[in-house]
Design a binder for these strands. Structure first.
Lengths: 231, 231
DNA sequence: GTCTATAAAGTGATAGAC
DNA sequence: GTCTATCACTTTATAGAC
């Protein structure tokens, strides 16, 4: 449960908080340095003083989000592999570990859960060049480790197939993080107003079924020995 | 099989083509009027003359893509319901009809398939305000009709659950359309280089399994009467 | 229809006073 | 560290000549 805030001077923190909020609401491209300093009630020059440039500020906001998410994912995966020593980690628990750190239920910034999710969604839907290389590297490391775990949980799914399925899965989360209100609007309210916890549960069922497609399920021993505790 | 181009003056078409290409490559926000006129070898004032404003141009590009996609979806759904009169349309065929018109395999603009997909992905990941109301209305109509068809194909899935599952599904396609190259890079080439047709087949299997999750499957009569022709 | 010229506002960044 | 003033551009949009 690390804090998302690093130790930083008060005005710098204020700038970052303002930037986060605006980026979440409007996207990175649509926010100017002046928008940020105005909301933070700081001087126009403050951004360049503290971050070197607008790009530096964006990169810092991004890494301030991605790094803890990355670490949380890895920590959860480590914990799962400890919890199921030598055994295969159940697919649903893997997906949970992969997805939950994105959803703002673990560590909250000052943003509301909704804005947190939107910002995470925007970050994870950034295209190549827009992503700082160090951040892309972190994403890659997470993905590599989870891909191996997924492959172990689904040994009969060919690896190329599995890559595409996890890609589809990732798209599902990102879209969910970004477009909750639009779903509400498009569905005329019929999507209800579930909590993030409820949405995650739905997503995990959906994704697990998609990832597992075509895999023979053992003849449903509704109370197998490995299912008796802890999940 | 309508053509994507409406009858338009030559310079206007050139502007639209240039705009499409740049929007696909960089996203709407990152393209200026001058970028477009420069690529189209037209005058700076041409955009405002032909489209009234930058926003007008963007709206036209968007509707030039969304409208045929919408019509294609509806036409395909109509055809399916005609093909399975009184019966339930198989889920896989519904997903195909919903997704294929997005993937550039039906009608191509002058853009390469890859750029076409990217532009479609960008359009369908636009947030509320950025989307012209008429366009959002078309999307809504498609979605409504398909939601009803999905509900018929999956009568035991509660409607709120189904809405979320189709939302996750939509995210999967959009992400796939936008991030093919990134997948290739992140996976170190292990995603292979399948054709769009191959990717669609993979996606349909994945999405169908996710949508169907928890639905009792009839005891696999591997050659039921309704499965003997046409699919 | 196409062009030049220009308006009016906004952009990121910085020098230099305090 | 904070501020003002300003530079050097770029942006969309338009008026008016051709």
């Amino acid at each position: 449960m690390r804090e998302i805030k690093l130790s930083q001077s008060e005005p710098k923190r204020k700038l970052l908080d303002a930037a986060e909020q605006l980026f979440a609401e409007r996207g990175f491209e649509a926010v100017s340095v002046r928008d940020v300093t105005q909301l933070a009630k700081a001087n126009v020059a403050a951004v360049n003083y503290h971050f070197g440039s607008r790009e530096g500020m964006i990169a810092l906001v991004i890494s301030r989000y991605v790094t803890p998410i990355h670490e949380e994912r890895i920590a959860r995966l480590d914990a799962l592999e400890k919890k199921w020593p030598g055994k295969v980690v159940p697919l649903e628990e893997l997906i949970d570990a992969f997805v939950r750190p994105l959803a703002g239920t673990v560590r909250k910034s000052d943003l509301s859960e909704q804005l947190f999710c939107k910002l995470v969604g925007r970050i994870f839907s950034l295209q190549g060049e827009a992503l700082p290389p160090a951040v892309e590297e972190q994403m890659k490391v997470s993905i590599d480790r989870f891909m191996k775990a997924f492959a172990k949980a689904l040994p009969t799914v060919p690896s190329e197939e599995l890559i595409w399925r996890t890609h589809f899965m990732a798209g599902g989360v990102i879209h969910m993080l970004l477009n909750q209100e639009m779903l509400h609007r498009l569905s005329g309210g019929a999507s209800g107003t579930p909590t993030m916890e409820g949405i995650l549960a739905r997503f995990i069922r959906f994704a697990a079924a998609g990832l597992r497609e075509g895999v023979e399920v053992e003849p449903t021993p509704k109370k197998g020995p490995q299912a008796t505790f802890d999940f």
